[in-house]
Design a protein around this nucleic acid. Sequence first.
DNA 1: AAGGAAGAAAACATCGGATGATTGTGCGCA
DNA 2: TGCGCACAATCATCCGATGTTTTCTTCCTT
Lengths: 240, 240
Amino acid sequence: MEVRRMSNSKVDLAISLVQELIRSGELRPGDRLPVEAELAAQLGLSRNSLREAVRAMQAMRILEARQGDGTYISDLDPARMIETLRFAVDVSGPQAVIWFLEIRRMIELHIAGIAAAKRSEAELERLNACHRELSQAASFDAMMEADTRFHVILAEIAGNPILTSLLELVSGPTVRARVWRQQDLAEVCAEHAQVLAGIAARDVDAAKHAMWTHISGVLNWVVAHPEELETPKSPPGSSI
Amino acid sequence: MEVRRMSNSKVDLAISLVQELIRSGELRPGDRLPVEAELAAQLGLSRNSLREAVRAMQAMRILEARQGDGTYISDLDPARMIETLRFAVDVSGPQAVIWFLEIRRMIELHIAGIAAAKRSEAELERLNACHRELSQAASFDAMMEADTRFHVILAEIAGNPILTSLLELVSGPTVRARVWRQQDLAEVCAEHAQVLAGIAARDVDAAKHAMWTHISGVLNWVVAHPEELETPKSPPGSSI
DNA sequence: AAGGAAGAAAACATCGGATGATTGTGCGCA
DNA sequence: TGCGCACAATCATCCGATGTTTTCTTCCTT
């Protein structure tokens, strides 16, 4: 499919102008923009076209529009902006899922290593408490929730919110694969225990190795079963 | 700043409906949507509101609208969709820059390790050729270009296009920091040579260690000089 | 004096209708 | 067969209006 060059439309120009004002520091997080009619006049386009520009920037989490109040610059938090990629991940095909899983594995090894090197006693206790909840999970859903929480705690210990957000993003396909794979509780617990042991012992290599094993299980399963990820949901009522 | 819940507007609903049709597989990359007036009627909103929805999805690289032709589902390539985060990275403050650099370092170590483990002779030769160009760079710009290309080649050897895209994304702040830092050619060459040696010798640890050194230089500089990244550009003509 | 309710004002959300600009297709001619 | 032109299709933009939601102001009650 040939990619066409984006036109120099008035709406795109308005988007660029607002973005440039943010880049230059003239507009800052939390600032309120002029009302639509005025902003449109200042940027040189109609109010409807301005609304298209604003809507695009809302989609990118740059602006927030509140009816009855006004339009504001968002907090421009990269971790939140990453969430806009959720759809991209959700619709990725089997090969992309594998790529996302590889990225996930890279991140998980990294944070396991950091946790092993730098964790506090309180942080270790949080992991242990989570591990206890995992071992007592009474359903697949509860197991998946405790599993996810374990990984989120690890990411928080690493202390990079953008990385935490990125991990959550790339974990989407993992959750889908695991629903299909139906790994049992005893196996998940054993894998987490190995990661925990490495972290408790401040053994970076052991923690990383255990995490590699934990994530590679589902990655290898996906590589072997790509068609399982192709199952479409039933279409909604309004078809085109 | 308090985050307000996104309203259930007609435009947001239309966005969700189209996304759901894509998720379900009823709409696929390259498919052409009905003309605006018809699509608006089918989704139950006015044409202007539909255009807002389409514009938002264009911003997210989900749709492509061509005047005189029609509106199409894009190729939904995650690597391309990641580019929409460019703005988020560009406007990130000093702390976020540090987080992005940490992520960059994580990725660079990962790909250096993969390159050392799996490179072909042809791929090693590509890296060597790039290194020769770096050593002969006649300006700072030429040096930065060759440096960037070295990293891109590494990412390509790793064979994960999404990771390549992600690396390019998080490399933005690095380029800004390096323009300020003004590292000299001899030093960059020496650091690349160490990475290359590890890769040539298929020594994963050596390659990773050398890459850690290479990236940590700029990361540590940024940590020590956060104010250098706060310099705003001069504002454009149209101020608000 | 403080809190709640009601109404007005502010501002976005949506609609309908029209014209302008661009792209693709089909036809005619060299 | 290739190129140019005209036309149709469709997005891009604008204008004007009404609807809906949020915030602010005023008044009343405790």
